[in-house]
Design a protein around this nucleic acid. Structure first.
Ligand SMILES: [Mn+2]
Ligand SMILES: [Mn+2]
Ligand SMILES: [Zn+2]
Ligand SMILES: [Zn+2]
Lengths: 118, 118
DNA sequence: CCATATTTGCAACTCAGTTGCATCAACAGG
DNA sequence: CCTGTTGATGCAACTGAGTTGCAAATATGG
């Protein structure tokens, strides 16, 4: 699908709306929703929530497969442009948890000003 | 307000709805929304998004003041009961960012099974 | 070519969040 | 005690993202 290409071409994670606006072959928002859903399932893209709680999509780098994501990298949220960036080089540090909690996965979200916004 | 008391009495962060359900003096959901908003502004409570992107509220521990939050602790998200827990003892580790990104604040969300759910 | 399976579009609905406006309660000055 | 002003509250309505059902369109394969 064209969607994956658009995601790879972008420097930041894109919302459903942004993708809809960029597709050359006009597609219904529901179709895009369903495609992204399928791609996420398939381990091709991953979804991250921005500060407002809306989903943004980015391509998986590798290692992710059918229902098993290994996107262990941190994400940067720009408070200026609202952009969300995958920090592929930044792995999420393990932390010591209080007794009783069993950890499965962690997400690290760094908030600040992005490259383009300063 | 009664809301702050309810938050302190809970072991986990609560949604607007959950708070509305627990108030003895019935209050409109909009009033609760506005109160929580004000309390957050005032540095009395902080808001954290759960896995579904809905806001949950927890009391601030201390140090937070008028528009300046210092809640630097991690949060635990239970995949079973959907509960969100403040991990007051777990501070968010600083990470090295790629060139150009200026960090202001970080959020660490740990996903797994909570104490009560195992 | 036809039967069947998959994909797509459209309409409609949910749910949290948010806003406008009218009303009510508190309160201070007179 | 009356009154005008201020802030809190309630109700209705709207937004935006996500989601579902169903029917039409398209692909697939015999
Ligand atoms: Mn990513
Ligand atoms: Mn917290
Ligand atoms: Zn930016
Ligand atoms: Zn749990």
């Amino acid at each position: 699908m064209e969607l994956i290409g658009l995601l790879h071409a972008s420097d930041r994670a894109l919302t459903q709306q942004e993708l809809e606006a960029r597709t050359t072959v006009a597609a219904d928002r529901v179709s895009i929703f369903r495609s992204l859903d399928a791609f996420e399932q398939a381990g091709l893209v991953h979804r991250v929530l921005d500060a407002g709680g809306t989903g943004r999509y980015a391509p998986c780098t590798g290692g992710c497969a059918q229902g098993a994501h290994v996107d262990a990298h941190a994400h940067f949220h720009c408070v200026r442009c609202e952009g969300v960036f995958c920090l592929a080089t930044v792995t999420v540090p393990k932390v010591e948890l209080p007794r009783g909690f069993r950890s499965q996965r962690s997400h690290l979200d760094v908030e600040g000003i992005c490259k383009a916004c300063r």
